[in-house]
Structure formats: structure tokens, C-alpha cells
């Protein structure tokens, strides 16, 4: 029995329901659950409280005794947990939330096992190698599971790999470029490629059509290219000029794909924010230092102006979507 709570709240705030009818309206909107729903809810809550308390109790117990435990017992614990979760995944029927949860837990336990290995044997490997190998090992599971949450973990691991890699190797493309390769270039290239591939395959695969993952990839690529454009504002050399051009191309592409071809408010809002960020940084550079306090009010004027313009435009686009619906 679905609840219409939000709709009831909107009507109450409009003042169209008289006070003596509020209780009846609440009943019609199914705000209060019935006896069966309460029983099912209490059943579920008790199960989750029991499972979480039990898991935490076990973790706390092992944490208390961790320093006294030998290395083989530590490995055995993690490996046993990994095998158990994998077996639960194999035994659970398809399209079940428990199945997804256990496989996600298995993927996390792979990382825990690798970290334990690195900590125990002090192999001297760079941190980026841990994350890269972790992503590599869970790739077959991600392909088989066809689940967005596990792919999210995979993308996050590779983004962390790129950032940590650039920490150690400042100029991985020294053959092609004389200058230092910026971390943002790598994350922009990787996330843009991931977004494009995901967008392509999502046309034929229903499980890939969850918008939140595509938006996350778009956000990561957008943040990277915006960062590169801001760097170009401060120092305009050949590489940074290329970044600026790519930023403009990204904005134009985004407008074409998400305003003309189909409408996606999230992408448009992200584009607006990117423009505001780069423009304000550019204005700040033109104005010079903040010894002249009037610079603050000029910047405030531009920020407020751009903000109002964005709000009006996005509202207009939203009304158009509503009319089409």
C-alpha cells in the first residue's frame, strides 16, 4: 500500500484542507502503516539489527585480539570470509539484493586481503599497485555480476590508481611531452573514455541504464577538465591552451547532447557550474590582488549575476520538460 505523504504535505502547505479534515486526509493518503506492514517492518529491523550487531561484535572481538594473533590466523580469517561470501553469492538466487551485497563484500575483502599481504610481507610495492591489482582481480566479477555498484567500486579504484601513480611518476609520457603530465589529464581521459563507452553500451544493456553511475563518471570528467581550464587561466602555455580548447569543446558537446538531442538537467547544471567556476577565476586574475577591496564586490556581482542567469535558464528548461511530459 503506497503512501502519498509528499502529495498530502504539499496540499497541507497550500492550506486547501481544513483542519478538521486533516486526520481523514492522512488516512486516505496512507501515511500511517497498517498492522501487517508494522509486523513486516519490525521483522526486518530485528533481522538487520541482529546481523549488524553480530558482525560488529565479531569485528570488535578480533580487533581486541589482533596483536596476539599469528600471521597465518589473520590470513585465514580474511580468506575464510572471502570464500564464505563468494559461496553465499553462488548459492543465492539471481536478482536478489543479498547476492549483490555479498559480491560487493567479496570485492572489498579482496582489497583487505591484498592490504594484509602488503602489510605482513612489506613487499615495497607502490600504493598505486595495490589499487591497480585490486581492480584487475575484481574485473571478472564485475563483468559477470553486471551490477552498477561493483562497477562503481572498479571505477573508483582505477581513479585512485591514476592519482597515486602520478604521485610517484610525475612524467609518464616523457617521450612525447617535455612538461609534467598533470594528474587531471589522466583522470579526464580515463573518465571521459569510461563515460563514452558506458553510454554506448547502455543503449543495448538495460542494467547499464542507471543514470547515477553515468552522472558520476560525467562529474569526474567534468571536474578534471574544469580543473585543467582553471590551470590554463593561470598559466597559458601550449598544453594548457589545448586544455582550454577541450573544455570549450566539452561544453558545446554537452549542450548539443543534453539540451538539443535529449534534455538532462543534471548535465546542464554541471556545465553551468563549470562555466561559473572558470569565469570567476578568470575575473579574479584580471582584477589582480585583493588589496583593492572593491574587487570583492565586483566578483560578488558577477557570481550573483551568473547564478541568477543559471537559475532562470535551468528553470525554463525544467518547465519545457514538464510541458512535454
Amino acid at each position: 500500500m503506497a503512501s502519498s505523504r509528499q502529495q498530502l504535505v504539499e496540499l497541507l502547505q497550500q492550506g486547501v484542507i481544513s483542519p478538521e479534515h486533516v486526520a481523514d486526509a492522512e488516512q486516505l493518503a496512507n501515511v500511517a502503516p497498517n498492522k501487517e506492514q508494522w509486523q513486516q517492518f519490525v521483522n526486518t529491523v530485528l533481522l538487520w539489527i541482529a546481523c549488524i550487531s553480530l558482525s560488529c561484535a565479531i569485528v570488535f572481538f578480533f580487533a581486541y585480539n589482533w596483536s596476539q594473533m599469528g600471521r597465518f590466523l589473520k590470513f585465514a580469517l580474511v580468506e575464510f570470509s572471502l570464500i564464505s561470501t563468494t559461496l553465499i553469492y553462488l548459492k543465492t538466487p539471481a536478482n536478489n539484493l543479498v547476492r549483490v551485497a555479498t559480491l560487493t563484500l567479496s570485492c572489498l575483502l579482496v582489497g583487505a586481503l591484498m592490504a594484509l599481504f602488503g602489510q605482513t610481507y612489506q613487499t615495497g610495492a607502490d600504493p598505486w599497485q595495490l589499487f591497480f591489482n585490486w581492480a584487475l582481480i575484481i574485473t571478472p566479477w564485475a563483468l559477470v555480476a553486471r551490477n552498477s555498484i561493483i562497477w562503481l567500486l572498479w571505477f573508483v579504484l582505477l581513479n585512485i590508481t591514476l592519482v597515486l601513480y602520478c604521485d610517484v611518476h610525475r612524467n609518464p609520457f616523457f617521450i612525447m611531452f617535455n612538461t609534467k603530465v598533470n594528474t587531471l589529464w589522466l583522470t579526464f581521459a580515463f573518465n571521459l573514455a569510461s563515460f563514452s563507452v558506458w553510454q554506448f553500451f547502455s543503449a543495448s544493456q538495460s542494467w547499464m541504464q542507471k543514470s547515477w553511475l553515468m552522472r558520476m563518471l560525467a562529474t569526474l570528467a567534468g571536474v578534471s577538465i574544469t580543473g585543467l581550464a582553471i590551470e590554463a587561466v593561470y598559466k597559458l602555455d601550449v598544453i594548457n591552451l589545448l586544455a582550454l580548447v577541450l573544455w570549450l569543446i566539452s561544453l558545446v558537446s554537452m549542450y548539443y547532447c543534453y539540451r538539443i538531442k535529449k534534455v538532462d538537467l543534471f548535465m546542464l547544471a554541471g556545465g553551468c557550474l563549470s562555466i561559473i567556476a572558470v569565469f570567476i577565476v578568470w575575473m579574479e586574475k584580471q582584477l589582480g590582488s585583493f588589496d583593492n577591496i572593491l574587487n570583492y564586490i565586483i566578483l560578488a556581482f558577477f557570481v550573483l549575476g551568473l547564478g541568477i542567469a543559471s537559475a532562470v535558464w535551468l528553470k525554463k528548461v525544467q518547465r519545457e520538460i514538464k510541458h512535454e511530459c
Binding site: A269, G270, Y296, I297, L306
Partner: peptide
């Protein structure tokens, strides 16, 4: 996400006003 974007920009503008 639109509210968040406008919130960020609103706060940024207000910050510059306060700094002034």
C-alpha cells in the same frame, strides 16, 4: 542537483559580499 549548484553559487556570492 540544481538546488546544490545554486546553493554553492549563492554561498560563493555571499562570501565575497561578506569579505567586502
Amino acid at each position: 542537483f540544481v538546488k546544490s549548484m545554486l546553493a554553492f553559487v549563492g554561498w560563493l556570492g555571499a562570501l565575497f559580499i561578506m569579505l567586502f
